[in-house]
């Protein structure tokens, strides 16, 4: 599975990529919104982790801009250090599938859950398509 991580915090990107790699997935990264947007369009990943608060362009902005132009709809996980109702609603509004609050208690569990959810979503989509 092709996975993309868009986060301005290099340690977050690297740790996520590591776990994805350990789990046998292909991981890509972008350090801000515009770059993330470009990589997303080019690679058409299956699973995308996007941080909400980034300098220049916010996570929800990236998601809401990219989604309409995609042929394959990926599973989008929005992440934020501000947990709570607002962040979850923000995620839902922009078209993201799931919200993850930082900090992560157990990164492996977090990634596994995201992969599982994306897989379930994909099969649902496939079923829907078929």
């Amino acid at each position: 599975m092709k996975c993309l991580v868009i986060d301005d915090e290099p340690l977050v990107r690297r740790s996520l990529l590591r776990v994805l790699q350990v789990r046998g997935h292909q991981g890509f990264e972008a350090e801000d919104g515009p770059k993330g947007l470009a990589v997303w369009r080019e690679l058409q990943p299956d699973l995308v982790f996007v941080d909400i608060l980034m300098p220049g362009m916010s996570g929800p902005d990236v998601v809401s801009q990219v989604l309409p132009s995609l042929t394959i709809r990926p599973f989008v996980v929005l992440m934020s250090a501000y947990s709570g109702e607002d962040s979850e609603r923000l995620a839902a509004d922009c078209g993201a599938n799931y919200f993850l609050a930082k900090p992560f208690e157990d990164l492996f569990a977090v990634v596994d859950e995201a992969i599982e959810r994306s897989g379930a979503a994909k099969s649902a989509n496939v079923k829907g398509d078929g």
């Binding site: 986060d7 690297r14 941080d51 992560f104």
Partner: peptide, 19 residues
């Protein structure tokens, strides 16, 4: 400051966990 610290901390913790 919480948000500012949370981000790098999340990365730090997660990376240490992975490694």
């Amino acid at each position: 400051i919480a948000h500012e610290l949370n981000n790098p901390l999340t990365g730090l913790r997660s990376l240490a966990q992975v490694l």
